[in-house]
Design a protein around this nucleic acid. Sequence first.
DNA 1: AAGGCTCGCAACCGCCTACGC
DNA 2: TGCGTAGGCGGTTGCGAGCCT
Length: 416
Amino acid sequence: MGRSPCCDKVGLKKGPWTPEEDQKLLAYIEEHGHGSWRALPAKAGLQRCGKSCRLRWTNYLRPDIKRGKFTLQEEQTIIQLHALLGNRWSAIATHLPKRTDNEIKNYWNTHLKKRLVKMGIDPVTHKPKNDALLSNDGQSKNAANLSHMAQWESARLEAEARLARQSKLRSNSFQNSLSSQEFTAPSPSSPHSKPVVGPPRCLDVLKAWNSVWTKPMNEVSVASASANISVTGLARDLESPTSTLGYFENAQHISTSGIGGNSTVLYEFVGNSSGSSEGGIMNNEESEEDWKRFGNSSTGHLPEYNKDGINENNSISFTSGLQDLTLPMDNTWTTESLGSNTEQISPGIFVETLTDLLLSNSGDGDLSEGGGTESDNGGEGSGSGGASENCEDNKNYWNSIFNLVNNSSPSDSAMF
DNA sequence: AAGGCTCGCAACCGCCTACGC
DNA sequence: TGCGTAGGCGGTTGCGAGCCT
């Protein structure tokens, strides 16, 4: 089937929008809602195609757009989410209220991606370009597992999107009647299919990640210290497009327990907290309830992953990656459990430390100077420059992560 | 001061998918 | 079931501003 043109392009204007055009579009949408984008230009008196109008609206004119410099928290969130989701800008944008996918994409391409490259980190995989450095330690498996979790999250997002569309269909008539009476701004990247107003969707993989790796053992009622991970039961939260968010969506801080049981903040979402006047700090009760939902099984094996991300038992599962990896469900990973020797790694702060490093290097100066960390391992700070030094940068990068993990709690991070 | 270069961002392009008929 | 349409999404382009030589 050939691609149909979005509009009749003859005689239509292209290029930058003028203030007059903006005003026309804004006035029309505020009065009538956008309705059919295809029909909108004619009705609004614009010589533009509907697609151009939609983009102008969603990326620029919407009243709920935040413009200007990205905050450190936003940068951190973008990096973390990109590590998990890749170039799924719309998915990332759902976790950054008031930012559009286009803006996030541009910011990534013009700022964050360059930082990664400068550090010798592949901006696609978020791994050091020289993987040989990782071959004999736990980080390669760590990163692989992170990637694995991203696969999980991708499946979940797809399933959730489908459910959202179904839900939208069911409520379409209601929405239509509403839109004729009052104006509501569409959400950043999906004016129709996503909630118009509300807290950002949580990234369940992060929640799960934190739940598994950072929860003190005395809070984990369902697991023994050697229990294996199972995601059975998590997918039941997919029963509705919003149900996965219920106990997490308002969380701006996720209270976790780091090494040594120190309470700290792992991920901080800078989202709309409209549903929580307290900023949504997750308490122990919520965490435990969360955990019970997450880990009500200790089958020891991840069930089969199917095309829809949900199997007949209403659980999400995978077939690759972890089948040989048995990970203890306690506060830390040890490299012993990962096939190496004695170093301890806390996967719960893996992404955090990674992004801390990136952000602490947010200046465009020499990125290898001390790794930009608070590590007391000052010997790592060598000058950087050409590609020949990438190897050293990589060592510094991962050493810095290890040092951060071993020598400080996450709360020591300058980021928090 | 002027021309060239780089960077950032708005906007466009084209593919994909869902949906209605 | 197949086709046409609409909208979403990610990649890419083009242009203006600022910087450099």
